[in-house]
């Protein structure tokens, strides 16, 4: 095992919520996402079909939690895993899990916070690596209710 790359500065970020991101769940966003996946269920496209099934509005397809609000002066989107000061040049997205607490529908505005939950150091076929585990909590802006959580990890090597 090589020397640990998990510095005090990195360790200090464990469990600390990062800045908030605002996501708009729009009918167009739901349709674009559903169409890109190839969904055929009208619940993702048509308000009447969604309401007929008991949803408030068009249902957000699985894995879609809105589109982050973009403003022109914002820095370009940070590639996943590039937000941490890790001495490895390459990063892979290791996996993603979504947990739904409540249905997410068009019209919802969602505020998310991400925090790092764990560092794991391993040596594998690609050499030494650092696996960073993160958890993102998604809250509905109107009432603060948690609607979903996302668990993900990135592999730095």
């Amino acid at each position: 095992m090589t020397e640990s790359v998990v510095t005090e500065a990195l360790r200090a970020q464990l469990g600390v919520d990062g800045p908030e991101t605002v996501h708009e769940v729009t009918s167009t966003g739901c349709r674009m996402f559903a169409r890109a996946v190839g969904h055929t269920d009208l619940v993702f496209y048509d308000r009447d079909a969604a309401r007929h099934r008991g949803y408030r509005d068009i249902l957000a397809p699985p894995g879609y939690l809105g589109t982050p609000v973009y403003l022109p002066r914002m820095a370009g989107a940070v590639r996943v895993g590039k937000d941490l000061d890790v001495p490895y040049p390459r990063v892979l997205n290791g996996g993603t899990t979504y947990e739904y607490v409540e249905p997410v529908c068009a019209g919802d505005v969602i505020v998310s916070h991400t925090r790092t939950t764990e560092f794991q150091e391993r040596t594998g076929s690609i050499g030494p690596m650092l696996i960073v585990f993160r958890e993102t909590t998604y809250r509905r802006q109107t009432d603060g209710a948690v609607v979903a959580r996302m668990y993900g990890n990135t592999i730095h090597y």
């Binding site: 996402f33 996946v37 190839g38 969904h39 055929t40 269920d41 619940v43 099934r53 397809p61 699985p62 894995g63 879609y64 892979l92 997205n93 290791g94 996996g95 993603t96 899990t97 979504y98 947990e99 739904y100 249905p103 668990y151």
Partner: peptide, 26 residues
């Protein structure tokens, strides 16, 4: 591919079932 798994599950449980949690490793 993760979203494809979401479609797989959604189509299986619909119209009355719900996906509570799903995910995969790449």
């Amino acid at each position: 591919k993760n979203a494809f798994l979401g479609q797989l599950l959604h189509d299986w449980v619909s119209p009355e079932g719900r996906i509570e949690k799903f995910g995969c490793q790449y």
